[in-house]
Design a binder for these strands. Structure first.
Lengths: 215, 215
DNA sequence: AGGCATATCTAGACACTGTCTAGTTGCAAG
DNA sequence: CTTGCAACTAGACAGTGTCTAGATATGCCT
């Protein structure tokens, strides 16, 4: 709650200073504490200590606010991918695929992850947003292609493997968020479950020495 | 739109006759035509030709209405699974798994599918609802176990394979609904894509003769 | 057949929402 | 200093979910 102090506009001032990011942080707070449905322009404005009409000036719409929030999530995921590459330093395609798969869970706020894939919340025709989702897909596609180039899989497998890999990781994340897997695997944190399933999948797809005994 | 005639209450009558299911059909219509966000108790009541307070009597809440709608979706999926088993007559575990995977797409209305996994829309602690989701999970679990019993996989693979299989199918459905895969595979209908990915996955997981050349 | 409890539905009110509009404040460049 | 423009306020409007009190029909019991 001490965050609110930083977000809220100081009394007596007319201009906020950095209202745009303050509203985004207020959105994040609401989403993580009370869920996506709890986000309202008026409540967000209230947290920022600003009149109810103010957000419209920065985001036009409620959809504009949520679009920006989703955009932020995609940026975080993409940043996490390149971070993961730096730290894990994968030496071949399959290892890179695992790294990418783990970065998929880097969006720590489940609500933000949800918003990223909720088409109904904003206009998906917005050019900037489509680009963000697109670049993640392209990266995955390229990774699979690299696996093929390195001889881990056959050329004809490119498309199905791309679909399978993405679907698996995304599905696990979605099921986790929906609480269905959670109840079954209470003691395993989601990251470990993802790592395990991810490794298994790449082992299945690509013919390479199983590392099951190492971990 | 001739459906509306059947849904709407005849003029001059005080009682609707079957308002509960009329409201559910109105919900389905709204969800498929204008999306999940377009569902409102008042609009649903309007379609059914009934006062705005009437739905509360059958569903208590808006969450109650959506819960019932989700429940309906689960019922359809479960029915589709047993239908699929009847028509495909799988002879072993892996084939059964494929059949189950295909039934996952039997919920033809993407909106209804979405509502089934949207925890935020209703109280997930409702006993009936949890049971419906649970039985689908149990069925999948049992299917994987059958594969193991038949020697297609090892005992220690039970959990990861269950997670992988469910995540893949669910993820594909979710990505399809979010429109991300759609733009890439415009010409392949989703059912075929699912069948292909599904078969590939079971081929990968279980050591059995590849049927790729047959299809 | 009569009467009565009860399920079904109506209609008004309330606080809340997103969006629109006109107006106010403050900053910054000419 | 003033003039233009961005940032923000404040009121209004239609729409929403939910709560009430009341009206209407149905079915059950005697």
């Amino acid at each position: 709650m001490e965050d609110t102090a930083a977000i809220a506009k100081p009394k007596g001032q007319y201009h906020h200073g950095d209202l745009r990011s303050a509203l985004l942080r207020a959105t994040e707070q609401l989403v993580s504490e009370k869920g996506t449905g709890a986000v309202s322009l008026r409540e967000v404005a209230r947290i920022a200590g600003v009149s109810h009409g103010a957000p419209a000036h920065h985001f036009v719409n409620k959809t504009g606010l949520l679009l920006a929030f989703a955009q932020e999530g995609w940026d975080r995921m993409i940043a996490a991918i390149s971070d993961g590459i730096d730290t894990h330093a994968p030496t071949n395609g399959p290892e890179l695929l695992e790294t990418v798969g783990q970065a998929y869970f880097a969006v720590e706020n489940p609500g933000q992850f949800e918003v990223m894939f909720r088409r109904d919340l904003y206009d998906t025709k917005d050019t900037g947003y489509v680009g963000a989702g697109e670049s993640a897909w392209v990266f995955l596609s390229d990774t699979i292609q690299q696996c093929i180039d390195e001889g881990f899989a056959e050329a004809e497998d490119a498309e199905p493997f791309t679909v399978i890999a993405w679907s698996m990781v995304h599905g696990l994340a979605a099921l986790w968020n929906s609480g269905r897997v959670k109840s079954r695997f209470e003691r395993l944190e989601i990251a470990r479950l993802n790592r395990e399933a991810n490794r298994r999948l790449t082992d299945l797809m690509f013919d390479r020495p199983a590392r099951r005994t190492i971990s």
